[in-house]
Design a protein around this nucleic acid. Structure first.
Length: 363
DNA sequence: AAGCCGGGGCT
DNA sequence: AGCCCAGGCTT
């Protein structure tokens, strides 16, 4: 199917079937009760690579904490990360925060309503730009996510690899041809809803699909083999050694991660990629100037799987006595905190598991 | 173009 | 255990 053939494709029938189905079957989601572009924006960022059911409680809490672009712009980044804690892909939160500040300063708090300006905001790519323009401003712009690519490749029997950028662009061109000019917001949401509820990755419910008669994959019986997607490399394993250090006051040592890279700006327990205790003892000596007395027993093992990485973490406990006057934790990434204050700091889930066992569980 | 960047839920 | 997901940024 190319763009020329698409001109003869019955797009209006498709729109009618799809929009009617959507009106009858759409889920009642918090952001669907809103037209505030800021709130639509927040929901779209949260929904990147994240399931609706996971997002809902985060969205509710986030909006109550930061009800407007102004409120979010005025918040501390650590507060924003804390609100995002556990949701993953933390650069989304940092980019959203930076972009909202820009909207406040450059656009007077008004989310831009055109492709050029909105696409310039940090964290707003082709999908999110189209989603905000269509859903918040009812502008007929394509919003092509994984759902839409799955639906369209099946509908039009496309064997293009959806992991390629060129395929996404091709599908955007197709959507521009078939989108409802009268109801672009509902059209885009309906396509995604169809992908989420009917045209699922496995076992699609073709028998109750509102557009089954227009689906070429269904016609050929190959709906389960689409879309084509290149396989990703297996995640690489890293053996880590983490340390829960207490001082004489019973405070716990935590460390802020670097401002770029994996889990940027989140907090953690000091750790090294190694498999022997000497490595972490030396690390503490060199980076924090702390002489730590480490208990040789492994207190906990944490396995955490990322998209491209697997952490196998052996967790040890340790204590420090007095430390020299030259030790200046104030200006380093390290910090001793009271146990009851640790909840104020954003931690990745892997280290929340350590908090639960080693700090809250109190061995 | 390819790699980096989380976490949870499904089969 | 492998797959999926309302993607975008960096190199």
């Amino acid at each position: 199917m190319n763009i020329e053939e698409l001109r003869e494709w019955p797009a209006e029938d498709f729109q009618a079937n799809l929009l009617h189905w959507y009106e009858e079957n759409k889920r009642d989601l918090p952001w669907r009760r809103e037209r505030d572009p800021y709130k639509i924006w927040v929901s779209e960022i949260m929904l990147q690579q994240t399931k609706v059911d996971t997002v809902i409680p985060y969205y509710e809490r986030f909006i109550s904490l930061f009800p407007s672009a102004k409120a979010l712009a005025e918040a501390e980044e650590e507060t924003v990360l804390k609100a995002w804690e556990g949701l993953g892909y933390y650069s989304r939160a940092r980019n959203l925060h930076a972009a909202v500040k820009e909207v406040n300063e450059v656009y007077g708090g008004m989310v831009p309503n055109n492709k050029a300006e909105i696409s310039r905001l940090r964290g707003v790519g082709p999908y999110t730009a189209g989603a905000i323009l269509s859903i918040a401003y009812n502008i007929p712009a394509p919003a092509v996510d994984g759902n839409v690519m799955r639906v369209v490749t099946r509908l039009l029997l496309m064997y293009d690899d959806i992991s390629k950028v060129t395929t996404r662009k091709k599908i955007e061109a197709i959507i521009e041809q078939i989108i409802s000019e009268q109801h672009p917001s509902e059209f885009n949401q309906a396509l995604m809803e169809l992908g989420a509820l009917i045209c699922t990755p496995r076992n699609p419910a073709c028998l109750i699909c509102p557009v089954q008669l227009q689906c070429r994959a269904r016609e050929e019986g190959v709906q389960e083999t689409l879309p084509v997607k290149a396989k990703k490399a297996k995640p690489k394993q890293k053996n880590m050694l983490a340390l829960v250090v207490k001082n004489k006051a019973g405070q716990v040592l935590i460390q802020k991660r670097p401002e770029t890279g994996l889990l940027a700006n989140l907090w953690q327990f000091p750790n090294v990629e190694a498999d022997n205790i000497e490595a972490i003892v030396n690390y503490m000596k060199e980076t924090a100037q702390l002489e730590v007395d480490v208990n040789v027993t492994v207190k906990q093992h944490v396995k955490h799987v990322f998209t491209h990485l697997i952490w196998e973490i052996d967790v040890y406990s340790g204590e420090v006595g007095e430390w020299g006057e030259e030790t200046d934790l104030e200006s380093s990434s390290f910090k001793f905190v009271d146990k009851e204050d640790i909840d104020w700091y954003p931690f990745p889930v892997s280290h929340q598991k350590i908090i639960d066992r080693m700090v809250k569980g109190e061995e």
